[in-house]
Design a binder for these strands. Structure first.
Lengths: 123, 123
DNA sequence: ATCGTTTATCGTCTATATACGATAAACCAG
DNA sequence: CTGGTTTATCGTATATAGACGATAAACGAT
């Protein structure tokens, strides 16, 4: 595959250019993985799931992190679509986006399954 | 959960201290996700799987990245255990560690399954 | 209206990730 | 032994991630 001469661009241009070379599926999977790539976010999802009902900043009490940091992690999860949040007055109410989570599960398991099929077809 | 006063420590001490607060399972999953959190590494795994046999730097030809960068991504995958590599003279031969990949699959699907069970038990 | 509570965001700092070119080491071929 | 090939690593630059305290905005309660 042709490789661009990247040192003529800024880092940002570069990163954007690189991304074009990957398929949507590859980028989606990587994005999802990135959202799950910090233990705090794993815990947050677990906490949100366990509480069943949405909950606000009780998440902070479950984590050894400052309120600001937890809020940032929640934002990441929200941007990844794994969590949805509503503002209720002064409070914020988060909950697991089950539909999105199940799509995520599909995405991952499909990818692994395909790899597995390849393995089985040759080894 | 008690939160440490972290601004009295260096960033490194801090990060290490935080990690102690997470379970092994949570950290394992996050580590795995991190290894998969870049599209280049997804592609590399796909390429290695598709070639069936191990292969060396042909991976570079499949990616829009420099040899140095690809080598770094391979190192990340190797450190995560998803890929194994052998040096054969001047060449390096990589291949998917199928056992590790299948464990990874288990780890992930177990986690999602548990979340799903929680959902089903209440909603 | 004022006070306490809650939470998102700002500013900042440090660490890590990502990319590259250059280079050195290890080999193979001649 | 010399020259080409391959690849890991070094050095470097930039971008992103992750943490915090401080603060402002939005409420509810008094």
């Amino acid at each position: 595959m042709l490789r661009p001469v990247n040192h003529l661009k800024t880092g940002l241009d570069m990163a954007k250019a690189q991304m074009d070379r990957f398929t949507d599926a590859q980028q989606d999977l990587a994005r999802l993985a990135k959202a799950l790539s910090h233990p705090a976010r794993i815990v947050i999802l677990e906490v949100l799931a366990a509480r069943k009902v949405c909950l606000c900043g009780e998440v902070v009490d479950e984590l050894p992190l400052s309120q600001a940091t937890v809020s940032q992690h929640l934002k990441v999860l929200k941007e990844a679509g794994l969590v949805s949040g509503e503002i209720e007055g002064a409070r914020s109410c988060y909950c697991v986006d089950w539909k999105s989570l199940s799509q995520a599960q599909d995405l991952i398991s499909t990818w692994f399954k395909r790899a597995d099929d390849i393995k089985r077809s040759c080894c």
